[in-house]
Structure formats: structure tokens, C-alpha cells
Nucleic acid binder design. Structure first.
Lengths: 150, 150
DNA sequence: CATAAAGTGGATGTCAAGGTCCACTTTGGC
DNA sequence: GCCAAAGTGGACCTTGACATCCACTTTATG
């Protein structure tokens, strides 16, 4: 339902939000999010083009969020990578009703709309703040205080 | 978001429901739903394997629904073709929390759950009954009464 | 029982998504 | 100004989704 690339992009962005405003190198993000480094690099380029993240070259460079976590929604990230394609006109191409979707496609689009809305309502900050037992990326929660930075 | 195959399967099933309980040949369905005939044939085989439709060979054969339209939900059709994959365990494969999803994946799964629920709540009969201006498959609504069975 | 109308199964083709590599460029620090 | 740490761009590979084709099987009917 959600592409692998979307999953990767979200992981990366969540990680960046978690570390904000410090920049993180592609390698660091890759390690933390378990995303293949070379591919992550491409994903980050996409996010950079969409002005979700900033990329800086050279020593001390890396990626960082272009906004603060409370100003960035998951929807923006998803749409930057692989936009949610709402059904706006009849997929059969029948011009008959213009924008009037038939009941089938209306329902499919409603489903998309719901997802879109849920994503638009969720900021990165909210994800970080979640009072859940699990830390954002399913990283093991620091068991006793601190543990070696594996 | 929804694969092309899911779209095709739904169109076919809606068409069959619309014509129920008469069988329709692959060719007839293909014409009505604008799905490539050869591919539709494969899709129908999948639906047949999932016992959504019955396929009958030979003269007078074709496809027909295995249930009545009010007993068949879109979810069943979708799941037969390309199951909605809920996120049940951490996509990073970190066993740390077992079934406890982190906030990010929890939200993604919530979105999937919403879609799943919406689809489970919609029967084919409901789609046909919809008091919308548009006929199920965006076919032009019979303008005056009856029109030639193209 | 021959025939034509159907679906079946499998080989094949095409393309985009996901993923990898590497030579190159940029940049901060000594 | 050199070097090492970073990202960049492009070539390339693999796989699965979508799609087509065709020889074959099943079956209703005259």
C-alpha cells in the first residue's frame, strides 16, 4: 500500500527530527534506520528537491530538516516521495460525468482522502512526543539509562 | 496506492454484480470495464481461485459472482487480488517490542486499518444501489430507458 | 460427434521500482 | 593547498507488475 521508498523516507525524516537540529550523514541515517545507504542517498536527494531536508557536502555535512519537526507533516514527506494520487476523474476515462465519480471510485477516493487527512494531521513532532513505550523507529528503548552507541 | 490489478478486479466484480446473476464472458466484461481482455482473464482466474467468482467454460460460459452482491464486500475482492498488508510487526525487524509498533508505524497502520474497515463495510450491493448520478462503472447512464446491448 | 464458444496455462515482452557502484565534486580543517 | 569527509550523478542490475499471445482444453448444442 505504501511503497518501500515512502517507508524509507519517513524513517529518515523521523530520525532527522529525532536528532534535530543536528545534521546527520547518510551513513548515520542508514545505520539508524536500516535503509540501504546507497538507496537512502537517492531518497534524500528527492527530499532535498522537495525542500523537506537540506543536504550539505563536505566535512561536517549531512542532512538536516528544512523545518522544525512541529512544522513538518508526514503528508508532506509522503507527497514529496510518492504523492498520494487521489481519484479526481473517472479512471475509465469516460468523460461522461466529468468530476462525478461513480460509487465504486467514490469510495476508493474516500479511502485515499482519509489517509491523506490522517497524514496531514500528523507532524513529526507528534510522532516524537508520542507517549508510547516504543521509541520512534522501533529502536530499542534505552534499557537502563545509556547503552553503548552500537 | 491501489494497484492497477485491484482496480481491474473491482471493476470486473462490480460489473458482474450489476448483471447478476447472469454470467458474462471475459470479452463482455473487458468491453464494459475497459480492462485489457487477456489480462482480465488472469485477474478473473485469481478471483476464481479466491472463490469470489465462478468461471464456466464452453458455450454459454463466462464469469459470475459466487455470492449475491449484498454478501460480497470490496475488502474481499481487494484481499483476493492483493491483500491489504497491515503492519503487524516492526518493519525494521527489530524484535525489541514484539507487536508494539513505534509511533510512526502505528500511524501508518492506523491508516491501513481505516481503509480496511471502510472496504469491509461496503458491499457490492451498496455500490449498485448508490443514489448517485453516476452508474457504477462511470458508464454513461442509460439516457432514456433502454439502449442497445452493445 | 463435430463445431464453435468459451476459459486455461504457459511463454514471452516491457517497464518502473528498488537497489548497487563508482568516479567525481564540494567543502572544512589543518 | 592538500586531504579526508561528505554528497552527486549516472550507469547498471534485478525483480515484479502489467500485459500480450497462442496452442490447448472444456462444453453446449445441432
Amino acid at each position: 500500500m505504501f511503497s518501500q521508498t515512502v517507508e524509507y523516507a519517513l524513517r529518515a525524516v523521523v530520525h532527522l527530527a529525532d536528532q534535530a537540529p543536528e545534521p546527520r550523514t547518510t551513513e548515520q541515517i542508514a545505520k539508524a534506520t536500516l535503509v540501504p545507504k546507497a538507496y537512502l542517498s537517492k531518497v534524500l536527494q528527492g527530499l532535498c528537491a522537495a525542500e523537506i531536508v537540506l543536504l550539505k557536502r563536505g566535512i561536517g555535512g549531512g542532512a538536516m530538516l528544512a523545518k522544525t519537526p512541529d512544522q513538518l507533516t508526514i503528508l508532506e514527506v509522503v507527497n514529496a516521495v510518492e504523492p498520494i494520487r487521489r481519484i479526481r476523474t473517472c479512471p475509465l476515462g469516460l468523460v461522461a460525468h466529468g468530476v462525478n465519480l461513480c460509487p465504486l471510485h467514490k469510495r476508493m477516493d474516500d479511502a485515499l482522502a482519509t489517509v491523506e487527512a490522517a497524514f496531514r494531521d500528523t507532524t513529526l513532532a507528534e510522532i516524537l512526543a508520542e507517549p508510547t513505550g516504543s521509541h520512534p523507529l522501533c529502536e530499542v528503548i534505552p534499557a537502563r539509562k545509556s547503552l553503548p552507541t552500537t
